[in-house]
Design a protein around this nucleic acid. Structure first.
Lengths: 279, 279
DNA sequence: CGGTTTTGTTCCATTATCTGGAACCGTGTC
DNA sequence: GACACGGTTCCAGATAATGGAACAAAACCG
């Protein structure tokens, strides 16, 4: 059985696509393989030709060709005139519906706005998924438009405020499982580069109810975040306020922390109420 | 062989998901079936339980159950605690990369901005796909944030400025093919509700180099659009300026039309240059 | 509380689909 | 013209999808 090194995109993007849930890669059969191929194309920043994909995906020519054909036929990929593949428009269509229909996002939106008004800085909403945090929404002030650059993006849990806040709310067992799967990588001099440092930080976060990102992911970017979670909620998320270091001091962040925590709690409560098990 | 009435989502959404390319539904085998199921869930606005999906998708229980399991395992769907299915986060991740990596969008962006500065109204960029136009980008002024409500959305070709502009640039053969597939539906009193009226409008558009939407899709919304297309470009798109009727008169639109046409031409040229067959 | 319907999940022989090696074009190159 | 290369097509064999039926667990009900 192959499946090989698919997903090892050569791009450098956040590295480990430790996506696809648990341990092994098998289980989803044909669908999984098709998506792995899709991932290869979508993750790459330059257009790929058949042979390029062949090299990355490590599948037999015939097989890969059919898979690509199917993906194109379904609109998930698009085959350009110069024989390069690019992400298809159907992906956008899917995402648009997924996004606007996301109940959690809708519930959190007014709270995010309020937090933004109080702080004046960018507010993010994210959800924990495996070893990553996926940004689900964003409110910023002088946004020069642009589809919220972050939405849908994934960042490692261990070096973002959102990620650490979310982790701090995880049950011990799941936390261990997640930590075990982490592949630490140093993004900045301040990145927490091992489980020990991370655990210490998480202890603080649990005690205080909020977590910081002290330029751990990007230099000059700081943030304070709090977890959104509740019994009956099938996921753990978080909300954060982010700003550039020159404008947002650690003292400033500290002063916002209680508000962030409070708003996160409010979101948790409403989400549990409206998304909880009781319908 | 089944496949049945899948895709006949009961939601009323823009109706005909005349998506998935050409006539029949077969061809993509397992992948197509899985996506059909995904479509059912994503297109619905309320959360669906297993049985709901079963009813819509018309597949045997065992089969559907496995398909759903696979979709969940792949992160395209997410199974909540109350046993309802909702769109998965992986969709967002896909879309984010698809969108930011879309070359055409990137090329058009500065032009869109310029057009926005000249007019002060909302500027849209779209691509023709089958009988729909898919919005790919948007620049608007006092946007109260929100992920560009439109991006990824699809509208019928025959009642939007973008759609008609794109159609007007289509080769005769493809145009006929597309028109033949249209299912006209009246959205407002001004909607062009048959092929004859549409053709007349398209003739004007071809002659002038731009098309209007005279409150044909939504009441109180007008727009002027021009096609983006060129030899060597594997698709046809368009750019448009949209505004509320109370602020944007037809005279106003007429006055913007030349600028829209000019910008569309500029985008076409650069796109052909950079996306064209010659690498 | 026992019977009954509904809903979600699991099994498994059958069969359609996917696999992948090889052969087949079309193009560009030495 | 031979050769290499990228893309496409073919087809017997391996594999995964199919769907009817049985099963467990709630929800419903008299």
């Amino acid at each position: 059985m192959r499946q090989a090194d698919i997903g090892t995109s050569g791009t450098g993007e956040t590295d480990a696509d430790a996506d696809t849930s648990a341990g092994k890669g098998a289980g989803t059969g044909t669908l999984g393989k098709a998506l792995a191929v899709l991932d290869v194309v979508v993750a790459s920043d330059q257009p790929l030709r058949f042979t390029d994909i062949l090299a990355i995906a490590g599948q037999p020519r015939g097989t890969l060709h059919r898979q690509l054909s199917h993906l194109v036929e379904e609109g998930l990929l698009s085959l350009r005139a110069d024989l390069t593949y690019e992400p298809g428009l159907r992906l956008l269509k899917f995402a648009a519906r997924a996004w606007s229909g996301n109940q959690f996002r809708a519930i959190a939106e007014p709270y995010m706005r309020r937090l933004h008004e109080e702080t004046g800085e960018t507010v993010h909403l994210g959800i924990l998924r495996g070893v990553e945090v996926i940004y689900v929404d964003k409110v910023e002030s002088r946004q020069t438009v642009r589809m919220q650059s972050q939405i849908g993006n994934a960042s490692p849990v261990y070096c973002t405020g959102l990620g650490k806040a979310a982790l701090s709310a995880l049950p011990a067992a799941e936390l261990e499982e997640t930590i075990a799967r982490l592949a630490f990588r140093r993004f900045t001099p301040h990145t927490l580069a091992d489980a020990v440092a991370l655990r210490r930080d998480l202890d603080d976060a649990r005690r205080d109810g909020y977590a910081f990102d002290r330029e751990e992911h990007e230099t000059d970017i700081r943030c304070v975040a709090a977890a959104v979670h509740a019994d009956g909620l099938s996921f753990v998320g978080g909300i954060s306020v982010t700003g550039p270091a020159y404008r947002v001091t650690m003292e400033q962040l500290e002063s916002w922390a209680p508000a962030v925590r409070k708003i996160a709690a409010a979101i948790s409560e409403e989400a549990a109420l409206r998304l909880g098990p009781g319908r």
